[in-house]
């Protein structure tokens, strides 16, 4: 678990970003773009989904949400 930003109080539930086998906890209230920057993830390299639906960079992430990030980069011999 990568703790990116500490929770401000015990009553505030962090936003969880999940990318493959990694998890990042982010303070709620940020946009997706800000949250990805905090986690050190390039916006271009992932697609973010909430309950299976894609969300955009200016979406505000709310308390307790789990955002699944789908890696878009593939490589090797193409």
């Amino acid at each position: 678990m990568h703790m990116v930003e500490c929770k401000r109080s015990e009553a505030t539930m962090a936003v969880k970003l999940v990318l493959r086998d990694k998890e990042y906890e982010i303070r709620p209230g940020m946009t997706l773009l800000e949250a990805l920057r905090k986690a050190g993830i390039a916006y271009e390299s992932v697609i973010a989904t909430r309950d299976g639906e894609m969300i955009l960079e200016d979406e505000i992430l709310k308390e307790g949400e789990v955002i699944k990030l789908i890696a878009v980069i593939s490589g090797g011999a193409r």
């Binding site: 390039a42 916006y43 271009e44 390299s45 789908i70 890696a71 980069i73 593939s74 490589g75 090797g76 193409r78």
Partner: peptide, 25 residues
Amino acid sequence: IYDECPFAEGSQSIYYKEVLNQLES
């Protein structure tokens, strides 16, 4: 298939893509 080719990890092409994505950001 979502899994990456197991041999692609650390490949030059992925590294270049990451560099270009930094530029794109």
